Simulated scan of single mutants.
Amino acid sequence: MSTVIAQQQNYQRIAQAIRYLSAKQQKQPSLAELAAHVGVSEFHLQRIFTEWVGLSPKQFLQFLTKENAKRLLRSNSVMEAALACGLSGSSRLHDLMIKTERVTPGEYRRMGAGLQIRYGSCPSLFGYCFIAVNHRGLCKLAFFDDADDEASLLLELQQEWAAAELIRDDSRATALYEQVFGAVSKSPSSSQGLFQAPSHSVVVLLKGSEFQMQVWQALMAIPLGEVCSYQQLAESMGMPSSARAVASAIARNNIAYLIPCHRVIRGTGEFSEYRWGADRKRAMLLHEHSMGS
């Protein structure tokens, strides 16, 4: 079994554990109760959970509480510094040298006429990954769990690029996944899984209105493993009365993880829903939290 497939299976177990702990957090379930629910041994669950997120299940309960989320929301200095100066440090997501380009007005009008888009799916760290690319760059990245979800993502791609020629190419999708996320390895000094940055930049092709572009660029300034509210993001853009419009633009993001809409939560501290699943959102944040710690 390949490392990526094993990681994908571990994600499914961890997602199941996250759902259980989230529902039962008031009762503070023991590791034995959690392991019984997931269907693996306590030792195995403790190991894969800690390797994945850098936190034990008990620590996860503390991280997930509303009080902790509110504490993060009150700490604006990191967010302000990131927006003003950009990100730094070897563990920051955008050290992967992500470059963004926008669809030209002509390309927007033509809906992809004359373009050839290759798409496919592969196992990933966060379930299955759906990726599409054309000659300009990566134009869709999403996550899913079953065949029906994949069919819906393909329909979305067809609607987004109605006049383009779509070609299924799973090997190309796998190669792109590795280019985007790099290899997953073990740090010599740590038991947690770490991303190795690709050796060259990843070009992301964005298609949206001027306002949506501004929102997506603001998302990329949120530090790895941190969160902010919709209101805070609107304020950081100089548009404090536009929180609802910001939320709408976030919901239309077609590039999961790289344009990190998973880092935005409600002002109350709730993690809220996520286009690609609330459990997946929590898993991404926890994984990033461990990478930046």
Rank of each mutant, 00 (worst) to 15 (best):
L96D: 01
L96T: 01
I98Y: 14
K99A: 12
T100V: 12
T100G: 00
R102K: 11
R102V: 08
R102I: 13
R102W: 10
P105A: 14
P105E: 08
P105N: 07
E107H: 05
Y108A: 03
Y108L: 14
M111K: 07
G112C: 06
A113R: 13
A113W: 11
Q116S: 14
I117T: 02
R118T: 05
R118C: 05
R118V: 00
C122A: 03
C122S: 14
S124P: 10
F126E: 12
F130Y: 12
I131C: 11
V133Y: 08
V133I: 03
V133H: 03
V133D: 01
N134L: 12
N134C: 15
N134K: 12
N134E: 07
R136Q: 15
L138R: 01
K140N: 01
K140Q: 02
A142P: 04
A142H: 06
A142I: 10
F143Q: 10
D146P: 06
A147S: 07
A147P: 00
D148G: 01
D148Q: 11
L153P: 00
L154R: 03
L155M: 06
E156H: 15
L157W: 01
L157A: 00
L157N: 00
Q159W: 02
E160L: 13
W161H: 06
E165M: 04
E165A: 08
E165L: 09
L166R: 03
L166F: 07
I167E: 09
D169C: 07
D169R: 02
D170S: 13
D170R: 07
D170W: 05
D170H: 15
R172Q: 05
T174G: 01
A175K: 11
L176K: 02
Y177F: 13
E178T: 15
Q179T: 10
V180Q: 06
F181I: 01
G182I: 10
G182A: 06
V184I: 14
S185L: 13
P188A: 12
P188W: 11
P188V: 10
Q192R: 14
Q192W: 08
L194P: 00
A197H: 06
A197D: 04
A197P: 03
H200Q: 15
S201Q: 10
V202I: 14
V203W: 02
L206R: 15
G208S: 04
F211I: 12
F211H: 05
F211D: 09
Q212R: 13
M213I: 15
M213D: 07
W216Q: 09
W216K: 04
W216C: 02
Q217M: 15
A218P: 13
I222P: 09
E226C: 09
C228Y: 02
S229D: 03
